[in-house]
Design a binder for these strands. Structure first.
Length: 200
DNA sequence: CTGCATACTGCAGACGAGTG
DNA sequence: CACTCGTCTGCAGTATGCAG
């Protein structure tokens, strides 16, 4: 009994893609609520989420906050911690280096709101951080800034979902996924949310 | 039931092969 | 030799599947 009506964006996606239409109708309306508040913390969480399940990432993230005894992670917290000390908080060597590098960027550039940067500057700054690649940047743009037209073919879950619903054959080159996603423009983000939900 | 091995949604870096 | 490009490896916790 789906009582909640689909948004106009979701209806639009259904019109341009029949396969996606079925997924959206089954899912029902998805509320897209990016967390715009603490950008630094969002990035830390994304770094932790690389390669591991969201559940595992959540546990590590909560342990990290508990160890640091804070509700809101700030770059300054990590300034005086060595990579080794961050690692002891439950992270791998590379992720510790990554968080350290991210903190340095925020402190050096004195960032308050990354949203004010142009897309180019945003990408350039984030990609300069050790351990942050295109996937991480996309996740930040979706879940923190709330951009509506983001799709990342580097996300394995999205690819699996697209395989399962017959959009793209498994093992295809990444560019086929990107090409397919073009039809969802300018709401690729909303399409991604439905693909994620469809496979849990 | 318990315990263990394994795979799993990204990334950097090491390394080898290919090129000039 | 000096580069570029592709391949391989290791890593945080958890769910799953299989052996005992």
């Amino acid at each position: 009994m789906e009582k909640v009506k689909l948004s106009s964006k979701e209806k639009y996606l259904g019109e341009v893609d029949n396969k996606l239409k079925k997924i959206i109708e089954k899912n029902g309306h998805i509320v897209f609520k990016p967390n715009r508040k603490n950008q630094f913390e969002s990035l830390v969480k994304i770094i932790i989420s690389q390669f591991i399940s969201t559940k595992a990432a959540n546990t590590i993230f909560l342990n990290l906050k508990k160890s640091l005894n804070t509700d809101s992670l700030q770059p300054l917290v990590f300034r005086n911690l060595s990579t080794y000390e961050i690692k002891k908080l439950g992270l791998s060597v590379n992720k510790s280096r990554s968080i350290k590098s991210l903190s340095d960027l925020f402190i050096d550039q004195n960032f308050t709101d990354l949203k004010q940067l142009s897309e180019d500057d945003l990408h350039k700054n984030l990609l300069s951080v050790f351990g942050v690649g295109n996937w991480s940047v996309s996740m930040f743009e979706i879940f923190c800034i709330g951009k509506l037209n983001i799709f990342s073919s580097k996300d394995a879950a999205l690819r699996i979902s697209m395989n399962r619903f017959g959009m793209i054959k498994p093992e295809s080159d990444l560019k086929f996924y990107d090409d397919y996603a073009e039809r969802w423009s300018p709401y690729k983000t909303i399409a991604s949310l439905h693909l994620w939900k469809a496979i849990d």
